[in-house]
Design a protein around this nucleic acid. Sequence first.
DNA 1: CGGTATCCGCGGGGATACTG
DNA 2: CAGTATCCCCGCGGATACCG
Lengths: 104, 104
Amino acid sequence: MNSDYSQKCGIPEFQHSITGKWKITIIWALSIKTLRFGELHRQITGITQSTLTKQLRELETDQIITRYVYRQVPPKVEYSLTNKGKTLIPILKELNNWSIKELS
Amino acid sequence: MNSDYSQKCGIPEFQHSITGKWKITIIWALSIKTLRFGELHRQITGITQSTLTKQLRELETDQIITRYVYRQVPPKVEYSLTNKGKTLIPILKELNNWSIKELS
DNA sequence: CGGTATCCGCGGGGATACTG
DNA sequence: CAGTATCCCCGCGGATACCG
C-alpha cells in the first residue's frame, strides 16, 4: 500500500456513483441531452418504471443528475447531468477505451 | 445515445473486473508487489479467508491477476498482476483523482 | 405522466468448521 | 499455509398494483 491510496482513496466513492445496473446507461443518455422521465424510460429498454425511479433518485443523491419538476398537469419532469456528472463523461470514455483495448 | 457507446460499450466489462467489495484493494496491494495469500490476508483487514479466495478466483478468471503455486510443503502461493491488470493502475489513479477533485 | 408501495427472488459476501 | 464446504443474511433489482 502506498501513500496516496491508503491515506484517502476515493475509488469506492466513484464506484458508488456508477454502481447500479442502469446508471451508466442513464448517465450516457443524459450526456447527449436533458430528457424527460418517459423519454429515458423509452430509450432504456428493459428497465422497469420503479427501478428507473430508484436509480434516478440515487444519482440525484450523489449529485450526478438534477431533477426539475414543471408544476403543471399532466406532470413534466426533466433530468439532466450536473456539472459533477458532466466531469464523469471523459472518465467513462477512458474506461470504455480501456475495455476495447484489453479485450482484444 | 451516440455511436461509440451504443455500438460497443466496454464499461460493463470494466465494471465486472473491479466489482467486488475487495477487488480494488487487492489490485492496489498487488500493484506494489507480488504477494502470498497470507500476506494479502494480513494486509487487507476485515476480509475473511473464504471471501479473499473467491475474489482472487474471480480476478484470475478475468485475467487481472495470476496465481503461482510452489509445489512444496507447506504450500506457498503467490499472486501478481498480469499485464492486463497493470494497465488498470493508471486508470484507477485517474478515478481516484476524479473523486478527490469532485468531493470538495 | 411520473411516479409510490409492496412483495419477492437471487446472488454476493460473511461466519464457521474442516482439510491436504 | 492456503485453501474448501456449508449455511445464512441482506440489499439490489424485478413484478405488480395503485395514485395525484
